[in-house]
Design a protein around this nucleic acid. Structure first.
Length: 278
DNA sequence: AATAGGATCAACCGCCGTTAA
DNA sequence: CTTAACGGCGGTTGATCCTAT
């Protein structure tokens, strides 16, 4: 069977021919409600997988890939939509620092979120922030900024809100963060550390263990940044001096135009005191 | 009210690994 | 062993929405 591909113009419905001449027109573009209903019905009937044959069975003029994507990213039960929560942001930053652009793997740790959504978040929020800071998103400078400013700030806000609101997953977050300092890192910003229960409690409802962030010799509280330990005197001193309390630039819907909160002084600090220490 | 530019996100593309014929 | 089909994944695009002017 030959396949002719036609790109739809928004809601334009394409006529598809099928049959005697063994030609099928593949529809592209936005999915209609009818297509969604068809797909849902046939996935319920046949189960996930075998997307090409499912598409044919359902009479959908779509590729198997397109059906799979639509199902996984939109129609599948328990897909979480809407704003990425602070906890989710923190987890994404943490996991990305460990795994890089392994979106699917990261998504496994955020129940209901899709790799596509996480990827979009990264590109629209994180990459943009890096651009505003005039550094490459993969640069050590920016990674340090994420570790030592953005993530602590997120944790601070999570902690601040944990007392008066249950998590979006309906779990008590009172044990979210452990702000005690560590022996070997006592000079570091306490917000850098978090009880390892944080991630697993975040991933509530799903039996997910956080990635190993500490070996057996470490204390029960772990460094959320995993492989980072603030062992440099200069960095520790810098942390004590660095006032990041006003940072809003990283917060969603909070005007990324506030990136000037990332002052030259702070960036200089990062470059001078952190870049070589970790 | 109009519009330009930015932000967001759904969906497509291409590559790659796996599997079955 | 080879090859084609399929599914999964990350990268990218483009339509739509939002906001500032």
């Amino acid at each position: 069977m030959s396949v002719r591909v036609m790109r739809s113009l928004s809601d334009t419905e394409l006529s598809a021919t099928y049959g005697s001449e063994e030609e099928m027109v593949i529809k592209k573009g936005s999915w209609t409600e009818e297509e969604d209903s068809l797909l849902i019905n046939y996935v319920n009937l046949l189960g996930e997988g075998h997307w090409n044959s499912l598409a044919l069975s359902a009479g959908l003029k779509r590729t198997g890939k397109s059906c799979r994507l639509r199902w996984l990213n939109y129609l599948r039960p328990n897909v979480r939509r809407g704003n990425i929560t602070l906890q989710e942001q923190l987890l994404i930053l943490e996991l990305h620092s460990r795994w890089g652009n392994r979106w699917a793997k990261i998504a496994e740790q955020l129940p209901g979120r899709t790799d596509n959504e996480i990827k979009n978040y990264w590109r629209t929020r994180v990459v943009k922030q890096a651009k505003q800071l005039k550094c490459d998103v993969n640069s050590k400078q920016f990674r340090d900024a994420v570790r030592f400013v953005w993530m602590p700030r997120l944790m601070e806000r999570i902690q601040a809100s944990s007392g008066n609101a249950s998590s979006s997953y309906g779990h008590d977050q009172t044990t979210l963060c452990n702000t005690q300092t560590h022996g070997e890192s006592s000079g570091a910003n306490p917000m850098m550390f978090c009880d390892s229960s944080m991630i697993s409690s975040y991933s509530s409802g799903v039996d997910v263990q956080p990635p190993s962030v500490s070996d057996a010799s470490t204390t029960s509280s772990c460094n959320l940044m995993g492989d980072v330990s603030c062992s440099s005197d200069s960095a520790q001193k810098g942390w004590q001096q660095w006032d990041y309390s006003d940072l809003q630039a990283f917060e969603p819907n909070h005007g990324f135009g506030d990136a000037d909160l990332w002052t030259d002084e702070n960036m200089w600090f990062l470059q001078q005191h952190l870049a070589d220490d970790f």
